[in-house]
Write a protein that binds this DNA or RNA. Sequence first.
DNA 1: TACCTCCGTTTGAACGTTCAAACCATTAGA
DNA 2: TCTAATGGTTTGAACGTTCAAACGGAGGTA
Lengths: 327, 327
Amino acid sequence: MPEKVTIADVARRANVSRQTVSNVLNSPDLVREETRERVRQAVEELGYRVNQAARRMRTGRSRLLAVRIEQTQDGMNVFDRFLHGLTESAAKAGYRVILYSADDDRSEIATFDDLLGAYEPDAFVLTGTHYGDVRTSWLAERELAFVTFGRPWGMPEGGDHPWVDVDGAAGTAAATRHLLDAGHRRIGFIGWPEGSGVGDDRRSGWVRALEAASPKGSEAGALERRTDGSAAEGEAAARELIAAGATALVCVSDSVALGAMQAGPAPVIGFDDTPVAAAIGLTSLSQPLSDAAVRCVRVLTRLLEDDSPDKPDHVLLQPSLVIRRTA
Amino acid sequence: MPEKVTIADVARRANVSRQTVSNVLNSPDLVREETRERVRQAVEELGYRVNQAARRMRTGRSRLLAVRIEQTQDGMNVFDRFLHGLTESAAKAGYRVILYSADDDRSEIATFDDLLGAYEPDAFVLTGTHYGDVRTSWLAERELAFVTFGRPWGMPEGGDHPWVDVDGAAGTAAATRHLLDAGHRRIGFIGWPEGSGVGDDRRSGWVRALEAASPKGSEAGALERRTDGSAAEGEAAARELIAAGATALVCVSDSVALGAMQAGPAPVIGFDDTPVAAAIGLTSLSQPLSDAAVRCVRVLTRLLEDDSPDKPDHVLLQPSLVIRRTA
DNA sequence: TACCTCCGTTTGAACGTTCAAACCATTAGA
DNA sequence: TCTAATGGTTTGAACGTTCAAACGGAGGTA
């Protein structure tokens, strides 16, 4: 039974009032140096820790960040590394991460409501942004603090909010250039169905790099296939592209790339640098996830603690190419 | 700005007192049926949700479960799937998961202290139990509620606490029998250094299955190697074992098994059924993780809500063999 | 009639914190 | 000398909930 130490205990010990202790903790500059030190020592000696429930009741601040835990079918995702980074950098800033799960946007919004009523998280971190994302507008309408890991795809103007993202196009462009440098001229791309923000972005880097290499209008167009993202379709797409003359392949994901590798010995580059890529020697693009997590927390603390900036923060990070056996 | 609905608003609407509303929520049987319905309707109409901070201040209950987010080097772990299950089953039971991270037992205990002061989680879920685990005794001494996913390895008697685990020995025994059934007689085992509870347990299943197959004293002894768990050492160990006459290999982890696969065409079985195993067609033992998560939550709710049982709950679940290309 | 019990409900207080206002010296300005 | 301003500190109240005790009416018993 860890005896509870309250602010009143500290106050008694330091011969000051409750409020002075509170000031030492929250606005130290209001308190005379000498008193401040005395209070700090009392805090130390008694092992006092602020009770977040009581603080929250008074201030409406919980020091909690709510994050949805997502899971993909094949487990070849990147989210758990991001979450790890988020937990660590949040802790450094004095926040904790609280998890929730949801199956779709609708149920996620219902969970926002639940969480706000029960735990009042100070902010939300959203992942997996997509076209027509209703979550961000729901949060924005209510003036709630949030940041997305992922850009607001296809929001013309109004839907402007803070985000952190990784520049997928720059990644695939770098991958394509890497293959060009190795002498390849017919480089295929295996993507996702059109309409996915992330997928279209990654595709655009491949297009851009090819066009830069042969400005007169490239033969690229034909060397492209779209898949549902599974390894099986990746393999089929790779066979078709190789039959069509492709000598190397850039893929929208490690999962697709894994399939593509089965199609033959042609160089393949994946995206996300999942553990699977490392295991099978797949060259892949690595997202700076812990950096992204740090930036998300920084964006939020700015939003919550400083006077809110006029313009929402936008952070675009660069992925890096991890070269292995396959390219 | 979501207007705050308090218990007083509901009370006013239903023409009852605060306490009656509280009773409807917490001890419905105290309230007359008719009143109960009226209050329920008011709750519904106003979209009332209990404010956990206020409740917690009064009751000392936060409805939070604290879980450490762990990360292994190669990402071939099982934890994120467990965490996902935990989040979902906790939500069903009315709890939320709050994350923390820590580098070792000492700093984890410091974090317990921090969390208890600030957020008062109702219980902790510990993973990665090991010999001489000081975390469990710290929690037990303070009579805090917790469950471990993993048995209390090497605790002779006193250190008895609730746990949920997967029967690793049963898994490797099943894997070994599978290979025996396929006609193999010289089956090697690639493990971790001695002294790891999980590793020794998994090894014991292999020993047991071999002894059952040839009771006269098996030739197994020699067909064993210990590694640091990396794929590199796994490959080296596999080469040695095959050179020593092994025709099939049971491995303590997918990571090691991945290495072993590089050593040649001999059948290999891994452990954990990570996404990597699925990707490369590795036969592996799958832990029932979402089931384990459900059981962890059940153990905790029993501990927290029912009168604590005399005997701590122990739950041992069975892994299942997922057969793929490699065996 | 007077008293007790039981059931359903209400009332006051408390949890630990911070906001807002009040307080009290001390110094500055007129 | 009086008033005003300043810096540092204290006091009272409030956040939304639940515990503990009080309340009041219906029914039963003597």
